[in-house]
């Protein structure tokens, strides 16, 4: 009985939050020239926040086909970003320079940085 209740609750959580999703953000360059990697996985998040992560990833268009980043650095010490999305056995990676970073992707990065569950 108890087991079943738990099962059904966890299923409804999954429904709220969508399928498991992992976001990995790698930044490099900048004045320091350092590489920094940050990860956040939906299954480590409370359901409402996991849903928010899905929303941000979808809103940033990161579930579609990756467009190649072909822009050279716009200026010295510019930062570069790589965002990798893993869900349902698929992995998609997109790269951006600071100047070409869409606001929607920046929102995802800022949100990830603000989450205590993030790694890195």
């Amino acid at each position: 009985m108890r087991g079943r209740r738990w099962e059904s609750r966890s299923r409804s959580r999954r429904e709220d939050a969508g399928s498991p999703l992992k976001v990995t953000i790698t930044r490099g360059g900048g004045l320091a020239g350092l590489t920094r990697q940050t990860e956040v996985a939906s299954d480590a998040l409370p359901p409402g926040e996991a849903a928010k992560l899905h929303e941000l990833v979808e809103g940033a268009g990161l579930l579609g086909e990756a467009a190649p980043r072909d822009a050279p650095p716009a200026h010295p010490d510019e930062m570069g970003y790589e965002v990798t999305i893993e869900d349902a056995g698929r992995t998609r990676t997109q790269r951006f320079s600071e100047q070409t970073l869409p606001e929607s992707v920046r929102s995802l990065i800022d949100w990830t940085d603000s989450r205590p569950e993030r790694r890195g």
Binding site: L31, A32, L34, A74, H75, M79, D110, D113
Partner: peptide, 24 residues
Amino acid sequence: GNKFDNAFWDGGEMVYGDGSNQLF
């Protein structure tokens, strides 16, 4: 930017972030 961890010359002017306490 928002807690931006960098400073740069953009080709015509100097730009400074505030730092995030993660790196700077």
